[in-house]
């Protein structure tokens, strides 16, 4: 491809970005890693062995105290509270994006019904995982 004056056109920096935007909708597990930067773990939802392996990986990460984030309703990013390995669902807080009303800690009820949760199937979302925090 030639640009103005017959000079070769440099590759557009947007080209790679567009490709990345497409991969945004993928499913699977992404882990922030020291040596790799970002590890992509993909699995075929129809392959039982691959799904079982992915479940074991997710359980292992939760056991290690890693933070898992998935997109809930309205594409809002929410931290995973639990993982139901039998059904393969991430349990996340429902309506996490709504602003919390300002209340003093004394007025806040300590007891009552537990916060509403919703579940997201592991094969339909991409989970991004961050290691335990060392502070700073």
């Amino acid at each position: 491809m030639r640009g103005a004056g017959g000079m070769p056109t440099p590759p557009s920096p947007l080209k790679g970005k567009m490709k990345l935007m497409i991969t945004q909708t993928e499913t699977g597990i992404d882990v922030l890693s020291i040596g790799h930067g970002d590890i992509h773990i993909r699995f075929d939802e129809k392959d039982v062995l691959e799904v079982e392996r992915a479940k074991r990986i997710i359980e292992d990460m939760i056991r290690r105290g890693y933070s898992l984030f998935v997109h809930g309703k309205g594409k809002a990013l929410v931290r995973v509270q639990k993982f139901d390995a039998k059904k393969g669902f991430y349990i996340i807080a429902a309506g996490a994006l709504e602003a919390e009303p300002a209340q003093s800690p004394e007025l806040r009820p300590r007891r009552g019904r537990p916060a509403k949760t919703e579940s997201v199937h592991m094969g339909r979302v991409k989970a991004t995982i961050v290691g335990r925090s060392a502070g700073g």
Binding site: L32, S33, F69, L77, A134
Partner: peptide, 20 residues
Amino acid sequence: AGAQTPTDDMVAHLLMMRGD
């Protein structure tokens, strides 16, 4: 500096801010 690469640290900050 963190143990992870600089941009990975930023991704972690962004994820935590958005998610929790």
